[in-house]
Amino acid sequence: MRVNLTVNGRPQQADDVWEGESLLYVLRERLGLPGSKNACEQGECGSCTVLLDGVPVCSCLVAAGQAEGREVVTVEGLADHAGRRAGGTGARTGEGAGLAPIQQAFIDAGAVQCGFCTPGLLVAADEMLERNPDPTDEDIREALSGNLCRCTGYEKIMDAVRLAAARQSEGGRA
């Protein structure tokens, strides 16, 4: 079947999609967007997290056909997505044209080791900061409880999200 959807702001079309196929597979194998990772295919690890109509979901558990006509944001489009939210300040357009604040914070805090969990964590963390600009540690742990990381032990990830939140509120005040 054919599936039409908007990914990172662009209309996309995928052909010859198998009816039982996941959105994750469509993104990675048909649309050339390998940022979302496939680790478990059963909703346990969160490395495939994307926004579906603005809501974080495991793309491995969304049937491709369910994404018909919907809007998807993947880690490849996160900088744009965050840029638009910030009202286009420091606007960067086009995929890969820059980093979202949460991405920069992950780098600065040393929250990336092998990087496999990172795309999913970034999407989940960015969405939390959008909803909740001033999160407590408890809020961060809760928001990221569906994302597993086997390398960092999570402390640096906590640091990164706190850093991004702090920078976001400084930016808001300035």
Binding site: G20, Q42, G43, C60, L61, V62, A63, Q66
Partner: peptide, 26 residues
């Protein structure tokens, strides 16, 4: 029927289920 898919898709991804029809309720 497939709603959130959080049970159905796991079964399909792992080949435990190959339904003839998926009925999307979303």
């Amino acid at each position: 029927p497939i709603a959130g898919g959080t049970d159905v898709m796991v079964e399909i991804n792992f080949g435990h289920r190959r339904p003839e029809y998926l009925l999307d309720l979303t």
